[in-house]
Simulated assay, not measured.
Amino acid sequence: MQLFKALEVGFRRWRNQLISPIKYRGEAVHCPVCDHSFSHFLPAGSGERKRPGAVCPLCRSRERDRLSWLFLQERENDLLEKHMQFLHVAPEPRLSEFFFNAIGEGYITADLMRKDVMVRLDVQDMLYPNETMDAIYCNHVFQDVPDDRKAIAECFRVLRPGGWAVVNVPLFAESTMEANTPGNVRSAWDKRPDEHVRNYGLDYQQRLEDAGFETEVFSPEDLEPDRQKRERFGIDGPRTGFLHFVRKPAASNEDNPSGDSSPEDRA
């Protein structure tokens, strides 16, 4: 099954590289991630989560990826350095290339189910000692884990004082609510966990601060004030969301507000 999946992914990449620039030729929209222009972005999602103008035909970046890209391009010199310890959870291909080129050794990809990563990792129980990582990029993951507060606390625990993270989630509600049923229930043969087990609201920022993080929240308007450019980049829709940038306070925190112990202590 994994072999067929890998072949399918490889075929899709080849097809996108060869056909997309021709099939979707145009100048109406521009993807800042792959730096190509097209007639339009492709739709994504289904049901209530279906949205037009979401996916780049070439690099397959979503709105959230393009929003993060603008943020990272602006702050690359301040945030990224060679050989820093950087954990990328559920890595997006184009962003993964960008991070690896900027960091090199020290860049780590991780996921619970995927085979094309360096480390198999559950964000609710990371097998890293306290204060190991300089940075974490974890985009649209917490909505799929059973205990998101524990996952947030784990990110806080493994970050070094002064370390940072980008931890975006989709915002679909006024206030965060656990879903009665997952928004994406897997088929019986699909071993991956169900997705969208909660709908986040604007109080998500408070969850991050409850774990001890210092937070900054950036809207699309903050990262690109020009409305026409936001529309052309495909980040002006209601589902784009916000960029949540957090830091672990630089002062040493001997008392972990999450109450979690290190893996050595739990052993």
Rank of each mutant, 00 (worst) to 15 (best):
residue 265 D to W: 03
residue 225 P to A: 03
residue 60 R to P: 00
residue 236 D to W: 06
residue 262 S to M: 12
residue 29 V to A: 13
residue 108 I to Q: 08
residue 120 R to Y: 04
residue 179 A to K: 14
residue 122 D to H: 09
residue 229 K to C: 03
residue 183 G to L: 10
residue 75 R to C: 02
residue 66 R to W: 14
residue 124 Q to S: 11
residue 140 H to Q: 09
residue 252 S to Q: 12
residue 200 Y to C: 06
residue 77 N to F: 08
residue 182 P to G: 07
residue 39 S to G: 12
residue 135 A to S: 13
residue 59 C to W: 01
residue 190 D to C: 14
residue 129 P to D: 11
residue 257 P to I: 00
residue 78 D to Y: 04
residue 203 D to Q: 12
residue 160 R to M: 05
residue 213 F to K: 02
residue 225 P to M: 05
residue 224 E to R: 01
residue 82 K to I: 06
residue 209 E to P: 03
residue 32 P to K: 03
residue 189 W to I: 06
residue 184 N to F: 11
residue 130 N to S: 06
residue 219 S to R: 09
residue 199 N to T: 00
residue 248 K to M: 08
residue 69 W to N: 04
residue 114 R to G: 01
residue 40 H to M: 08
residue 112 L to Q: 06
residue 255 D to P: 00
residue 240 T to H: 04
residue 234 G to S: 03
residue 5 K to L: 14
residue 175 S to D: 02
residue 33 V to S: 04
residue 56 C to N: 05
residue 83 H to C: 09
residue 31 C to K: 01
residue 205 Q to E: 09
residue 158 V to S: 11
residue 39 S to T: 02
residue 244 H to Q: 04
residue 239 R to D: 14
residue 138 C to W: 14
residue 105 E to M: 09
residue 16 N to P: 00
residue 241 G to A: 08
residue 36 H to V: 00
residue 186 R to D: 15
residue 95 L to S: 01
residue 254 E to M: 03
residue 184 N to V: 13
residue 194 D to G: 04
residue 31 C to D: 10
residue 102 A to L: 03
residue 50 K to C: 12
residue 195 E to V: 07
residue 110 A to V: 10
residue 192 R to Q: 13
residue 169 V to R: 01
residue 205 Q to F: 00
residue 224 E to L: 07
residue 161 P to N: 05
residue 151 A to W: 02
residue 91 P to N: 04
residue 194 D to T: 06
residue 95 L to T: 13
residue 238 P to Q: 12
residue 215 T to I: 02
residue 172 F to H: 12
residue 182 P to E: 10
residue 151 A to L: 04
residue 66 R to E: 13
residue 160 R to D: 06
residue 213 F to T: 08
residue 95 L to I: 13
residue 136 I to D: 00
residue 219 S to N: 09
residue 10 G to K: 04
residue 175 S to T: 14
residue 18 L to C: 08
residue 264 E to D: 08
residue 136 I to K: 01
residue 104 G to C: 04
residue 226 D to A: 02
residue 192 R to V: 13
